[in-house]
């Protein structure tokens, strides 16, 4: 029998965090299936999926990470998951769109746009934001599979943008792919 765990780690960024965490998993006999990490404002967060022998529990892993002699604080959450893991597909849905929203930096921009997406059955697959010279920019990768009419949602989006003083553009992902990637 084996036990599957999803593990999340957050720390101030430094060299060696990935080695520390994967070392702890290795010592407990874990088999690392997938890992994804990202950094923001000097902090690193990563999410891992690993399989252990049945006797290894999430608490044992957390205790093992706590014993790491780390110069930064390592916040860890580990949870057992059941059933086969959902495969992460490299293939994007056919109706993958990119939305860019730009406006003067103020509170609630992300909340507003994400609420709009939620209200219109739009799934946010990826999101990145930047601020430059007081202009706040959001770039969202969206799945519009459940949206009945792109034209209609674009019309509503433009209305929303006008009301909230944002410049919003919604275009198909393919357009960005062809202009920035060389096919193999």
């Amino acid at each position: 029998m084996s036990r599957q765990m999803i593990i999340s780690v957050m720390s101030q960024d430094r060299t060696g965090i990935v080695a520390d965490i994967t070392g702890a998993i290795y010592e407990l006999g874990g088999d690392l299936a997938d890992l994804n990490q990202s950094t923001l404002c000097g902090y690193l967060t990563m999410i891992l999926f690993a399989t252990f022998d049945d006797h290894v529990t999430p608490d044992m892993l957390i205790a093992r990470v706590a014993r790491i002699d780390s110069p930064t604080r390592l916040d860890i959450v580990a949870r057992e998951v059941f059933g086969p893991p959902t495969a992460t597909s490299d293939k994007l849905p056919k109706r993958t769109y990119i939305m860019t929203a730009q406006g003067v930096n103020r509170k609630g921009i992300v909340y507003g746009i994400s609420s709009f997406c939620f209200e219109h059955d739009i799934n946010i697959m990826d999101l990145a934001t930047t601020t430059s010279k007081n202009t706040y920019t959001m770039v969202l990768q969206l799945d519009l599979t459940a949206v009945p009419s792109i034209t209609e949602v674009r019309r509503k989006l433009l209305k929303y943008a006008e009301e909230h003083h944002l410049q919003v553009v919604l275009q198909h992902h393919d357009l960005f792919k062809v202009t920035n990637e060389i096919p193999f």
Binding site: M125, A128, V139, Q141, K177, T179, N180
Partner: peptide, 8 residues
């Protein structure tokens, strides 16, 4: 996802 600067 593509880089934000490429998208912009």
């Amino acid at each position: 996802m593509l880089r934000s600067d490429q998208i912009l």
